[in-house]
Nucleic acid binder design. Structure first.
Length: 864
RNA sequence: GCCGAAGUGGCGGAAUUGGCAGACGCGCAUGGUUCAGGUCCAUGUACUCGCAAGGGUGUGGAGGUUCGAGUCCUCUCUUCGGCACCA
């Protein structure tokens, strides 16, 4: 290891550290030894040494006997600039990786580039730069920033998703999915962003607007698109959430809502005078006797038939469609003013045999459930609103308690509660809604007009993008053979270079004849290539598997190596990926499992979502002009200070308000550490490794503080992840050491104790400030590297004190503190409290009713 | 509307199980060091009454449980995040 051979130092042996008389302060006495903390000198020095050893952060192969630990931060998009959110994200992951190395784990800590995507094309349009060239120059620039930050990545397994060696496997997976019926093509209404000039997945549409262009309303277009059948795994994706105990509850809830599982029943209503039926989805089949209309989405297939024979109706339906489109574009479909129109047709309620009017409603969604509902105004808020507006009958069929008919009980409408009993519901009267649902759906199934069913909000994943800078979809269209997959041995389908990229829209690849024109592998005739590329979320759905063997050219990854490393022990990233990336990758993992490539069901055992970095109460953004540049921070204060501040200023899961004065404060602290260590370096380097058998009071106090600190930080790493308090604890320790300076000077704090403390201080600091701790590790005479130095153990015996202070309360209010031995029993506590002068003064003339002693905690006197 | 998180000094935040509220840092104040300072050191810093000793108040608000509540319970207000005619 290069650290070792470079870790030389002129040693402590020749150093003569003479202390002047006890009255002289050491730091005044030894200014030459007490250096000035200069990160601009220290950091480049170690950066160069570390760069010389590419194996430094290398993970060991699965044959390693150590416990494995896969820690991963979400890979960045190579925009060219790191921002503070990245620094925070990587500072967390890097601290954890370094801690785990020190704990003796086999750590996998890789990094890569999510390198396909729209900004590269925008740069091409704006600055006439080739996307590939632009992307790679950005990667180079960002890698310099990564190195400056001193992040411990195993770059041997770097991945870059825009390289054919990576994206060929996207194509390979696509073909496998096509074979399994998991990838399919269909014409569909798609979300179209005019600014991106491409299709967006549902997940990329936020309130009817583009996720990249807040101001851009998303349009609906009809296009032939490739889809991945995510819905096939909907049930498993919901169920799997229950097993993800290491995930934030918030993220699990968001995913659960997104998948939107809903149990209910589908019921067919025969259309009067027709062989057709209207199938409705309902979660409240128990209220079916209260259905006083059916409501169809304007796009429902039956509606077109009704409208064909009725021009007035057709016009009304068109109006409803337009209203819906307008609401969708305004981003508040939820607030749409309800409108509807009666079709003049009727359907038959299969339970009651009643005629029910068929309406078309603008509040009915065509793409959820069956696109049709039974309207039960008495027991559904929306139906109630609609029925009231249009004067439709409102029939109460669930009442709060047994033995009461609807007419006798004032029921506040709509009555939405699931409690009570059915009424006016034929043979089901008197049943609880839950029981009724079961019996009624059983009945519907037996009679063949209905079935229990589960509906999901989750839709299949549309992955076609009419863009250039992405993975070509490996499909061919042959006039004779139709859709033909590209044979596996012809992969990768390379993305051609030098393609004209304009803002016009349509796939840029369609304008490249050399790309489009191909040969059909079946008939040998002419075929046309698919010119759409894949959504870049495909790239990130499985990238973390590739890190385990990033340059394998026979397979996407080595199955056995993946089995060793997966699931990821700790994944760290922004909460903004809670849905998109994290659902897609859970889906992809299951697909790969069903292909027999992996055995894990879930990719990530523990997920951590860090808070945003904000400034002045707002998210950093160019438009707000509150962006802080990591480069500037590193130049001004050093990478250690920038990293450490990002961990210190707030607990990692909360938003962090960036205050530059705070960075300066951390830098000051590092300076204190530097001065203390350099001041005592020679003394410590030459000291014995074993602690003296008899310790002075000051030595005990310092050692106690040290071991308390070790305990706190170890605990923070293991459970709480409150690195802000870890760093505060280190600061307290350093403050204690500085305060003990007179004791050092007076010889009451011996060199072996100093060495013991200083060594461990540097070990504790190593995950947070890798440069400074490494520098001082060298300065204090250590020959070996710090990266894999063992994490310090804490000694409970050194933490224990003989005597401590405990509070004494009177009627629950603090009165004073008493000093008493830690082993004292309750009686001793009581006696000590009562003997205290202040306590006596307070209780004089009053009656002590009760004395509560919490051993080794406190005493409370209840007086009257 | 539904779900979730959070409200503590001038600021970021601490208080792990109900047991000394405000650790640590910033800022500020005073003093010192320095040719100089985006330097370093020391002391102080929740609010309030008081020259002081000492007292009172205090964790969004109102109640409650308890010897004791920032922490538990009930109600309520505010902020942020997610979802939202999803039948």
């Amino acid at each position: 290891m290069s650290e070792r051979e470079q870790g030389l130092k002129d040693g402590g042996e020749g150093a003569v550290h003479t202390l002047e008389s006890a009255g002289v302060r050491v730091w005044k006495d030894a200014p030459a030894r007490e250096g000035r903390y200069n990160p601009q000198e220290i950091e480049p020095k170690w950066q160069a040494r570390w760069a010389a050893d590419p194996e430094l952060y290398a993970a060991e192969p699965p044959t390693s006997g150590k416990p494995k630990y896969y820690v991963l931060e979400m890979l960045p998009y190579p925009s060219g600039q790191l921002h503070m959110g990245h620094v925070r994200n990587y500072a967390i992951g890097d601290a954890l990786a370094r801690y785990k190395w020190m704990q003796g784990a086999n750590v996998l800590h890789p990094m890569g580039w999510d390198a396909f995507g729209l900004p590269a094309e925008n740069a091409a349009i704006k600055n006439h730069r080739e996307p590939r060239e632009w992307t790679f120059s950005n990667i180079a620039a960002m890698k310099v920033q990564f190195d400056r930050l001193g992040l411990a990545y195993d770059w041997r397994n770097e991945i870059t998703t825009c390289l054919p060696e990576y994206y060929r496997w996207n194509q390979w997976f696509f073909l496998r999915m096509y074979e399994r019926g998991l990838a399919y093509r269909k014409k569909s209404k798609v979300n179209w962003c005019p600014q991106c000039a491409t299709v967006l997945a549902n997940e990329q549409v936020i309130d009817g607007r583009c996720w990249r262009h807040e101001e851009q309303i998303v349009e609906q277009r009809d296009l032939e698109q490739w889809f991945l059948r995510a819905t096939r795994y909907a049930e498993e994706l919901v169920e799997g959430l229950e097993t993800l105990e290491g995930w934030p509850e918030k993220v699990r809830t968001m995913q659960r809502n997104w998948i939107g599982r809903s149990e209910g029943a589908e019921v067919g209503f025969a259309v009067e005078g027709s062989s057709a039926e209207v199938r409705v989805f309902t979660t409240r089949i128990d209220t079916i006797f209260g259905a006083t209309s059916l409501q169809l989405a304007p796009q429902h297939p039956l509606v077109a038939g009704f409208a064909a024979a009725d021009q007035a109706l057709a016009r009304e339906v068109d109006a409803l469609v337009a209203q819906q489109a307008a609401a969708r574009e305004a981003g508040d479909l939820g607030a749409i003013e309800k409108h509807g129109v009666a079709t003049g047709r009727y359907a038959i309620n299969p339970f009651s045999g009643e005629r029910v009017p068929i309406w078309v409603g603008n509040y009915i969604l065509a793409d959820y459930g069956t696109g049709a509902i039974m309207s039960v105004p008495a027991h559904d808020a929306r139906d109630y609103e609609f029925a009231t507006k249009y004067g439709l009958e409102i029939r109460v069929v669930v009442v709060p308690a047994a033995g009461q008919a609807s007419g006798q009980v004032p029921v506040e409408l709509p009555y939405l509660a699931d409690e009570g009993v059915l009424s006016d519901s034929g043979i089901y009267d008197g049943l609880a809604p839950v029981e009724a649902r079961q019996l009624m759906s059983d009945f519907a199934r037996q009679r063949g007009f209905g079935t229990e069913t589960v509906t999901y909000r989750l839709k299949d994943w549309g992955i076609s993008r009419q863009r250039y800078w992405g993975t070509p979809i490996p499909m061919l269209y042959c006039e004779r053979d139709g859709i033909v997959p590209v044979p596996e041995d012809q992969l990768p389908v390379l993305l051609p270079a030098n393609v004209a990229i304009t803002q016009e829209g349509g796939s840029p690849l369609a304008k490249v004849p050399e790309f489009v024109n191909a040969t059909c592998p079946r008939c040998g005739g002419a075929a046309r290539r698919e010119t759409d590329t894949m959504d870049t979320f495909v790239d990130s759905s499985w990238y973390f598997y590739r890190y385990t063997s990033a340059h394998d050219d026979k397979a996407p990854f080595d199955t056995r190596t993946v089995a060793y490393w997966f699931p990821i022990d700790q994944y760290i990233g922004g909460v903004e990926h809670a849905i998109l990336h994290l659902i897609y990758s859970r889906f992809w993992t299951r697909v790969m499992r069903d292909m027999g490539l992996i055995t894990n069901d879930e990719p990530v055992a523990r997920l951590f979502t860090q808070g945003m970095v904000i400034k002045g109460g707002a998210k950093m953004s160019k438009s707000k002009g509150n962006v802080v540049s990591p480069n500037e921070m590193i130049t001004r204060y050093g990478a250690d200070a920038a990293r450490m501040y990002s961990l210190f200023a707030a607990p990692p899961d909360r938003d962090l308000d960036w205050q530059e004065d705070g960075v300066a404060g951390v830098s000051r602290f590092l300076g204190k550490v530097y001065r203390f260590a350099t001041r005592h370096a020679e003394q410590a380097a030459s000291a014995a490794l074993t602690l003296p058998a008899v310790l002075t009071g000051e030595e005990q106090a310092v050692l106690r503080k040290l071991h308390q600190t070790i305990a706190r930080i170890t605990e923070d790493f293991e459970d709480r992840w409150h690195f802000n308090t870890s760093i505060a604890a280190i600061m307290e320790l350093v403050n204690t050491l500085n305060a003990a300076e007179p004791a050092v000077e007076a010889g009451r704090l011996s060199p072996p104790v100093l060495r013991h403390v200083l060594d461990r201080l540097l070990l504790l600091l190593a995950p947070f400030a890798p440069y400074l701790s490494r520098e001082l590790w060298e300065v204090t005479g250590h020959q070996d590297g710090l990266l894999r130095a063992p994490w310090p153990a804490y000694d409970p015996a050194l933490i224990a004190a003989e005597e401590m202070e405990f509070p004494v309360q009177i009627n629950g209010k603090l009165c004073t503190v008493i000093r008493i031995g830690t082993g004292a029993d309750e009686a001793a506590f009581e006696a000590a409290a009562l003997a205290d002068e202040k306590v006596q003064a307070r209780i004089a003339g009053r009656q002590v009713v009760k004395i509560i002693v919490v051993s080794a905690k406190m005493v409370n006197l209840v007086v009257r």
